[in-house]
């Protein structure tokens, strides 16, 4: 597993309250936000959001690097394409669009073709 440094991360969108617009649309009253870490960096998350949703809220759309070094993130959003693979609490190859974020999750971006677990 090659751990990527935070400064290697793909550029993020500038953050403002734009991520609140969908919450406002459905008049959401989420619970208090909690923190997960993404490659060591603290990121705010809401209970009920998938890891992919947490990353999108933080302005991050890329979190996997393919074997030839190209960035990927969520594509199908419904668990079919496996493009959004990510390591959550030391378990590699989780589909970020399906896994619910939980307080204290240690999330790491992953690299390669998604066979990390077989190398252990």
């Amino acid at each position: 597993m090659i751990r990527r440094n935070p400064q290697d991360r793909p550029p993020n969108l500038p953050l403002d309250r734009a991520q609140d617009r969908p919450l406002d649309l459905v008049r959401a009253r989420p619970g208090p936000s909690f923190t997960v870490t993404v490659d060591g960096r603290p990121v705010d998350a809401l209970e009920g959001q998938s890891v992919a949703a947490v990353l999108w809220s933080a302005g991050t759309v890329a979190w996997r690097v393919t074997r030839d070094g190209r960035p990927r993130g969520a594509f199908c959003g419904i668990g079919v394409c496996f493009d959004c693979l990510i390591t959550v609490n030391d378990r590699p190859n989780r589909r970020a669009c399906l896994v619910a974020a939980a307080s204290g999750d240690v999330i790491r971006t992953q690299r390669g073709e998604g066979h990390d677990d077989l190398a252990h």
Binding site: P10, A53, W56, G73, F75, C76
Partner: peptide
């Protein structure tokens, strides 16, 4: 089409309906 930020139409909708998030502006 493999660039981050390129998503399926249904995927954008699913992430919005389920996670209340947008991939961009």
């Amino acid at each position: 089409w493999t660039l981050p930020g390129v998503v399926t139409a249904g995927g954008a909708q699913a992430m919005l309906k389920g996670g209340l998030v947008l991939p961009g502006r």
